[in-house]
Design a protein around this nucleic acid. Structure first.
Lengths: 250, 250
DNA sequence: AAGTGGTCTAGACCACTCA
DNA sequence: GAGTGGTCTAGACCACTTA
């Protein structure tokens, strides 16, 4: 008697992955707990090594689990930082609103890791948006508790900021936006474009991302009151470390 | 003579994946082009099947390639929809700003796929935010050109909207926000919380997502002028189909 | 030293696509 | 019908972690 071929049962590795995911989402396995390893899955289910690996790979690529060399596969945690886009609108008037996701980083400050400030030829997109061919570029990486969570690249029209503190590591009180103000080009308006995708290998390396972790790309453009774009800031965020918040009125 | 063991060369599958990625990013392989298949990689590099598969899996999990059963592995494309968070601030005064990412969906309208409107007990988070235990829930899925790109779940305090058109499929002109206004609870303020992660299997199925595609989760809360939360809308977006745009003033 | 995940080989059968 | 990707077995050696 052969099995009914009618209903397409999912493959073994899927069923195993589904079971483990269930255990994680139900809380039966909790943050940091160890999942059954390759050897355990092999003997429990009578499957080959590659099949057990495939099951674990599903959870790893979903970002639910993290493999640790020579040790095991563990349940991953989500404790995001809250990043406020347009904060001022929110706080005073709408302070009673309750956030959906807990955030973990109150008080714990950013550390700026690596700073590079150079004058460069603008890339194609940067040149188009800032309407210039030469830019000053400020690159830096941010960490929280020693773990890198974001890196950012700001570009400024070179002729506009030449000789100003913006071309030097220490920009003084108020940062680059205050200095742009000194130069008569105070930012008055911002737009942020947000997307998400899987990281390129260099991004994964720079942010120490395990598999199954997307990056959020935020492209922020600053405009003067006259509508002139004066800064383009590309931020690459570890998606597992961030919740972005935007507030606005109807 | 054994090889120098000093520098950790990346494994074979990584080197192959790196080569293919390079070809994709450089434009040598373009949108929709076919990548060398498993058999081609095996013979070209003298490797086993599993190793060739592993190389292709890297690109697939990075969202750069999509496998097609019985056909091949193809370069993937990125043609996002632009979703405006706080549009009104932007258009009139800052219309001259140029967007970074092209968007593809001008004019092509959303299709609403599946609609479900039910009264339910509120989940834990929803109950906390809306401060109620019973809610009316509106679920729907949006498609563009027949491809699903988003689904959304809106919750309203049940006692507040009971008997109104919000509990029925056709909400009339202006939609649910206009009806909330009729009820004396016009939304005056919004906050959106944005995060990204890999999809759960049901999400991947509902949005028809290939591997390597994150979802963007947008949690939008609407408040009355009095600061009372009156709607909680959870949107799940195909990250490969969207760019979110937010505008705000300094 | 024992156990873990990371890489790799050499096979096999299947369902699917495409000409 | 030939070729493709999807699943699976049964081995192997390695680097790494943990005790």
């Amino acid at each position: 008697m052969s099995e009914s071929p009618v209903s397409h049962e999912p493959p073994i590795y899927r069923r195993i992955a589904d079971g483990l995911r269930e255990a994680i989402l139900s809380g039966e396995l909790r943050d940091g707990d160890r999942l059954p390893g390759e050897n355990a899955l092999m003997s429990q289910h009578g499957i080959a090594r590659a099949t057990a690996r495939q099951a674990l790979a599903v959870l790893i690529n979903e970002g639910l689990a993290v493999p640790k060399r020579g040790s095991g596969v563990y349940v991953r945690r989500f404790k995001p930082i809250r990043r406020h886009g347009s904060r001022r609108l929110a706080r005073d008037q709408w302070g009673q609103g309750r956030a959906i996701w807990e955030s973990d980083t109150r008080g714990r400050p950013y550390t700026v890791d690596a700073v590079e400030i150079v004058r460069e030829r603008a890339g194609e997109e940067v040149a188009r948006v800032l309407d210039t061919s030469e830019v000053w570029v400020r690159r830096r990486r941010y960490s929280v508790d020693g773990r890198p969570v974001q890196y950012a690249t700001s570009s400024f029209p070179a002729d506009l900021v030449e000789g100003s503190p913006i071309t030097r590591p220490d920009t003084g009180p108020g940062g680059v936006y205050a200095r742009l103000g000194d130069l008569g080009h105070a930012p008055a308006h911002f737009t942020e474009e947000v997307r998400a995708r899987m990281p390129m290998p260099e991004e994964a390396a720079a942010l120490n991302l395990p598999a199954g972790t997307p990056v959020i790309i935020v492209l922020r453009t600053a405009y003067t009151i006259g509508g002139k774009p004066i800064e383009l800031n590309e931020m690459v965020l570890d998606a597992a470390s961030y919740v972005l918040q935007y507030d606005f009125d109807a």
